[in-house]
Design a protein around this nucleic acid. Structure first.
Lengths: 194, 194
DNA sequence: CGAACCCTTGATTGATGTCAACATACGTGG
DNA sequence: CCACGTATGTTGACATCAATCAAGGGTTCG
């Protein structure tokens, strides 16, 4: 099956909410936020995506994309034509498995949203560290505090406060320009995320 | 494809967390809660299921069930052998579509968890009314206040208080024994759920 | 009929949002 | 390359929301 590699600039919209389903994508490098715009005009970040993640799986039954996908930095994706994919058993099996993984992930991840702010942020940080295999104890954040707040249902002030608190307690270290975070004490962070 | 209809008593465990994947089920009548037990022994209700819902979709990539399923009342389900299902293209297509629906649903539903308590409960009530096609303005609740609280990340006291408040404001009416709810003003309830 | 369970309500405490002020970083045009 | 204006991030004071604790009423079931 032939695919296409696409290079995207920061803040580029790869998929627009409402577009017909034509392609699915695999994220090769960079990062992307998935956003849903509500009827009242407010928006909600449903998920952050990193290397290896599949984009667009929520469009298969609807045949259109219910969410938009926006790059948070310069990003590379690989494009798969959905019709071709259906007739290619190897690719099909891969995407089928990925979709099932998504269901499992949501089942488990939902619990994060019932936690208090410290738990929510600790869980997200652990997810970010784990999804960044190149440097497991260091994460270069492409999203803003406001993005994190929106995604977790907090105010940006609370996000800022909790991050400062975790730093004071020597669990993380916030580096230059507030945008990169070093993991100091994983055990403690895991305890906070319970 | 041959299937089997099973009748279950109240509080019966249909699927146990950790069981190998053998069957998927469709809920024909009654209601079921899906529960995940965490390492620390605490549990979290990931979802309530009603007529027409498919049980077990989060087990396909894992090949075991990551959650338990418990009936909330006398319940009837239909059993599908997963191996047979894979080789039956009609059934397969049906479950594939259902799984994609789940991904979409989770994408959208996550936003509920970023709302305040009144929004969370209003959203859940609307979901319950919509999922109960037989009597769209009336719902006989099989779950306890504590179940709702656990599922939404609230205390049972807050659930009780918000329900009382919605009743005082003539949006719902709580009937006999606190367990059935009549929808009075859908528009207002929708506004609360934004 | 009594015990266990479920639900409700009030008082208090703790957590989080809001608002205001300021600091830092970034981007653009001179 | 600098200067400025805009974005983003931090922190404190205060208000609001929701959890906790305590008490009591109703329902169910043996």
């Amino acid at each position: 099956m032939k695919t296409e590699t696409i290079r995207l600039k920061k803040y580029h919209q790869l998929i627009k909410q409402g577009d017909a389903l034509k392609n699915l994508f695999i994220l090769k490098s960079g990062s992307i936020k998935e956003v849903i715009i509500n009827e009242d005009g407010s928006s909600f970040i449903t998920k952050f995506y990193f290397k290896g993640d599949v984009l667009g799986l929520n469009s298969i039954d609807l045949e259109y994309h219910p969410t938009s996908f926006l790059t948070l930095e310069d990003t590379i994706v690989e494009k798969f034509n959905f019709q071709e994919l259906l007739s290619n058993s190897v690719s099909f099996h891969y995407f089928f498995t990925k979709m099932s993984e998504s269901v499992t992930e949501y089942t488990i991840r939902k619990r994060v949203f019932t936690q208090k702010s410290e738990g929510k942020i600790s869980s997200l940080l652990l997810e970010l560290f784990n999804k960044n295999p190149d440097s497991p104890d260091y994460f270069n954040m492409s999203m803003t505090r406001e993005d994190i707040a929106n995604h977790l249902g907090l105010s940006e002030f609370t996000v800022s406060r909790i991050l400062s608190k975790l730093q004071k307690e020597s669990i993380i270290e916030i580096k230059a320009k507030s945008r990169s975070i070093k993991l100091i004490d994983k055990k403690k962070l895991e305890n906070r995320s319970l």
